[in-house]
């Protein structure tokens, strides 16, 4: 339902690259570093930062020109607006992930034999991104109308997303290093973490969906 420019993808992609560079900086004093045990966490961190940027910009654009108001004036139902916005943000996030995940692997995890299949990785990324996009859309719609837009978004977003990120880091960690760290049981743990993340998604998306109308109406 929404067309957006390349500009946003470029800035999000570039930002993600910068985050990766900063990671390297953090390890630069170690001769040969092995980021495998914290790889999952680092990857999610890059995604969280990039999504914060993207979420904020996706709504600042709308707000400046009053497009959201134009949508509110039109006969489409309010929930559809939420789905449209959240789907747009999800799409952006997934596209950026398609770029940064292989890049992350190439830069930091080259010598690692991944325990899980690529689809397991993709599934975990999707469950995480779904929650980020859904809850993030709600929070970003609030934060664009506040004084310190991006700061407020970060302050609200990180603690609210914490449980999901916690579960998703565990799931991704199982995919990347499962065989080494928890031999034999990592598949079960992957599914458990994924299930918990999906549960979070279900509950929070339902709430975000129910509350969105109040936010855009205010």
């Amino acid at each position: 339902m929404e067309l957006r420019t390349k500009e946003m993808l470029t800035s999000m992609g570039l930002y993600a690259l910068l985050v990766l560079l900063v990671y390297h900086l953090a390890f630069s004093q170690v001769d040969s570093y092995d980021v495998t045990p914290i790889g999952a966490g680092l990857l999610w961190l890059a995604i969280v930062f990039t999504s914060l940027l993207g979420l904020n910009r996706s709504l600042v654009h709308e707000k400046d020109q009053g497009c959201l108001e134009a949508l509110l004036l039109s006969p489409i139902d309010r929930p559809v607006i939420f789905f449209g916005k959240a789907a747009g943000n999800l799409l952006f996030l997934l596209i950026v992930e398609v770029i940064i995940v292989p890049l992350f692997h190439f830069l930091f995890l080259q010598n690692i034999e991944m325990s899980g299949a690529v689809w397991m990785l993709a599934l975990a990324l999707f469950v995480g991104s779904l929650g980020i996009a859904g809850v993030g859309t709600l929070l970003a719609t609030m934060s664009v109308n506040t004084k310190g837009k991006d700061f407020i978004l970060a302050v609200l977003f990180v603690p609210v997303m914490f449980p999901l990120l916690y579960a998703m880091v565990a799931a991704l960690s199982a995919v990347i290093t499962g065989e080494v760290l928890f031999p034999g049981e990592w598949v079960g743990e992957y599914w458990r973490a994924l299930g918990l993340g999906a549960g979070y998604d279900a509950i929070m998306l339902l709430i975000a969906f129910g509350l969105y109308e109040f936010i855009i109406g205010a």
């Binding site: 709600l138 609030m142 506040t146 914490f162 579960a167 565990a170 049981e185 973490a193 918990l196």
Partner: peptide, 27 residues
């Protein structure tokens, strides 16, 4: 309105966070 929405989210998020930090396998 914003505060009310966020308060509801926070109240739901807290128990979830308790559950998840407990149930997610960490060795």
């Amino acid at each position: 309105v914003y505060a009310a929405v966020f308060c509801i989210i926070a109240a739901v998020d807290a128990p979830i966070s308790f559950m998840i930090t407990r149930l997610v396998p960490t060795k």
